[in-house]
Amino acid sequence: MEVVKTKKKLEAIQSSLANIENRVKDKSSTANDAREALQFRTDLNGKYLEISERLLKRGRKIDPDTNKPIYSEKFIENVTDLSELRISLLEKAIAIHNEIGDLVDKEKAELAEKAERDRIAQEEEEQMLEEEKRIQKTALAEKQRLEAEKIAKQREKELKEAAKLVATKMTDVERFLEMENARCEAFGSKTGPEALEDALGMLRTAVLDHRSPTAHLNLLKVLQGYFQNIVKLPDRKEFRRINVENEKFRNEILSISGGCEVLLAASFKLSLEKYKEETTNADVKQLFYVLEEPPLEDLDEWSEWYRVQKLFLDRISKEIQLCQ
């Protein structure tokens, strides 16, 4: 049984070697053929040699009783043929491998050459990427420089415009201060309830001559809001300090004769203040109507001052009711 199996395997090797031999003759053999021939050579000189020697040794066994071979002549003949086939295949495998074994070396050389080409190509690609990054970085730096230069020029322009605006603003403030000082002089230094009635009279006349009843009512409501805050929280300075540039103040109070006079009657004073403009660091002037609170230590004076503010609130509220 072992002889039959081994013979089939050797015949398969014989067929493969024949195919390889044909490709060698056609000069179409490859490194795989060389590796396969080497493997056959190793097997034929290794495991198949062991099988062959074992079978030959078995065929030479003698029966001690009859002094004749234990196995038949046919078995010995088959084993001998098997051994001869192995030897012939080994010789052929050696010959084929010797003839095309250099293909493996050639393949290794080609693989090494390809690996070197790939390495060089990769290095060139990396160099190209580095160069591209360098170009992009340079372009980005140039773009940032141009943008920074543009921003700097724009900033310089804005600073000049801001400085010009501040200068214009200061001129406007000074001109407005002259107008308000003239208004204060015209109204006089009178304060209190009688002065309030004079101011309300001026207001009615101005509204009847140039404004609608709605404008009159809106102005009174703005004044009412000022005095409500003062009466409710007299210690809060922000409620006793009115910026003349406030849009509501300009539209509702400043534009109508009698509006500022109500404030003057309540002892508001025109105050010119200076501060540093953040953008240009220039000196800027700004006007406020400011109502000073008497010191709490003088309770009589403070009580009278508070009574007058409440009286102004009540009188303005009554005037609003008359207009509605």
Results as ranks from 00 to 15, higher is better:
Met1Ala: 15
Glu2Tyr: 13
Glu2Gly: 15
Lys5Met: 13
Lys8Gln: 14
Lys8Leu: 14
Asp33Met: 06
Ala34Cys: 08
Glu50Leu: 14
Lys68Ile: 11
Ile70Tyr: 07
Ser72Asn: 09
Leu82Phe: 03
Ser83Asn: 14
Glu91Tyr: 12
Lys92Ile: 06
Lys92Phe: 05
Ile96Cys: 05
Gly101Leu: 02
Asp102Arg: 05
Asp105Met: 10
Ala115His: 09
Ile135Gln: 14
Lys137Glu: 15
Lys143Trp: 08
Gln144Ala: 13
Glu156Ala: 13
Glu158Pro: 00
Thr168Phe: 14
Phe176Leu: 15
Glu178Gln: 11
Glu180Gly: 08
Asp198Ile: 04
Asp198Trp: 03
Leu200Val: 02
Gly201Tyr: 08
Leu203Thr: 00
Thr205Pro: 00
Leu208Gln: 07
Leu208Phe: 05
Ser212Met: 01
Pro213Lys: 00
His216Phe: 00
His216Asn: 00
Lys221Ser: 00
Gln228His: 15
Val231Phe: 05
Asp235Glu: 12
Glu238Leu: 10
Glu238Val: 09
Glu245Ser: 11
Arg250Pro: 02
Gly258Met: 00
Ala266Phe: 02
Ser271Gln: 15
Ser271Tyr: 15
Glu277Lys: 07
Lys285Asp: 06
Leu291Glu: 03
Glu292Gly: 10
Pro295Glu: 15
Glu297Arg: 13
Asp298Thr: 04
Leu299Asp: 11
Tyr306Leu: 10
Arg307Glu: 10
Leu311His: 05
Asp314Gln: 10
Ser317Val: 02
Gln324Ile: 00
